[in-house]
Nucleic acid binder design. Structure first.
Lengths: 213, 213
DNA sequence: TGTACATCAGTGAACGCGCGTTCACTGATGTAC
DNA sequence: TGTACATCAGTGAACGCGCGTTCACTGATGTAC
């Protein structure tokens, strides 16, 4: 493996062979020898966290990691695949947040409210990633709007489960569906309104809007 | 004014001097001599209606109108100004739809529900335009998310008025604010979920989700 | 009515930019014998 | 233990693309006298 000087500067102390002090600790920010794939994903998420919209470029990610643009193609067939991986990573984190919220608040109404708040907070924390996850690259949406696969991410499943649990069992399936959609729309709408700067992203506002029945 | 052959083909029969049969009728698709500005806006909206996301390009619009890209700069200082004009036009149409909905359904709860449905339908009809209006170019949002001016479009005003009218007067200002936000978030959330293909854009679903108290 | 002239809305060539992707390549690594 | 060789993850140059924008320009239009 040939490595440019820039790579050395960025990755040398991170490669598993010479990780320095704590070889054995699992550092979430470190990637192992040859694991450029993980580094690319991490950097992609970082650039997405930079809040810039869909100006995310394959070349920029590679550049920042300190690797040639073409090296990316060793790990992803094309840019779309990279983006998809970013979405999968995003889903993982969102799911984790959902689980944490649920554990803390239980599975009743308060539990679902907590999940809803986590939803909005995630969107505000990682606007570009959130938007990407909602786009065609995301797990939630697969392909163009119409004939979508139901290949949903874990986060999405948790969300729907939480909604379903709230809906009275004796209600008709149709009614349950509408209620679920209302909950989701409320939370999603609040998230995107705040994301687009149409509503101030105040923490207090989030809980008030969501918690009120 | 020098005009390329392509311009002739596209615009000749549309210029006021030789409009053909119906000179005097106000044809919404016709623009008058020299009114390239209106033609550019119209074409911009048409390309936006083509549902393609933010791939809208100044050059493409000019090309389609049959004019050189640089001609655009006679009418708009830059691309951003063109986009802003598209948003203004979008606001005009949305406001018109709102007014029509309100007239038809009155100003009570049913009136607001109608406005909400118009909101969602507009988003589904003109996805790219809707998104543009919600972006930094839109009237609703001015500048980056944080320190926004309250320079809102007419549509936005109608929407907020409708919401305000629904809110009980005796409620606290805070409470009114939250209720308004909930209504807006529900409607906006439904719109964007359908837009992103996460929820099937069924007409029946729209009214059920919105009309249920 | 004719002429001089300013204005104004177009033109096409050119700029630099960054993008995604392809190509033939190189050198280190690991395996078989 | 040493050697031959396939594999594999990088490299940099190059491709064509379309973009927004600038530039000096041109020719028609309208006005003043």
């Amino acid at each position: 493996m040939t490595v440019s000087p820039e790579v050395a500067k960025r990755l040398d102390d991170v490669y598993s062979g010479n990780m320095g002090n704590n070889d054995n600790s699992v550092n979430i920010k470190s990637y192992h020898h040859g694991d450029l794939r993980a580094a690319l994903i991490e950097e992609g998420l970082a650039q997405l966290a930079g809040a810039d919209a869909e100006t995310l470029s394959l070349r920029a990610i590679a550049r920042k990691v300190g690797v040639s643009a073409t090296a990316v193609y060793r790990h992803f067939p094309d840019k779309a695949a990279l983006l998809k991986s970013l979405c999968i990573e995003g889903d993982r984190e969102l799911a984790a947040r959902f689980r944490a919220a649920q554990e803390k608040a239980g599975i009743g109404k308060s539990g679902f409210d907590a999940v809803g708040q986590a939803y909005v907070r995630f969107a505000l924390d990682k606007p570009a990633l959130f938007r990407l996850m909602m786009s065609k690259y995301g797990q939630m949406a697969d392909g163009p709007a119409d004939n979508r696969e139901a290949e949903d991410g874990e986060a999405f499943r948790i969300l729907l489960d939480g909604i379903a649990r709230l809906t009275p069992h004796e209600a008709s399936a149709e009614r349950q569906r509408v209620t679920a959609l209302q909950s989701w729309a409320l939370v999603h709408g609040l998230a995107t309104l705040m994301l687009d700067g149409l509503v101030p992203p105040e923490d207090g506002l989030i809980s008030k809007v969501i918690n009120t029945p």
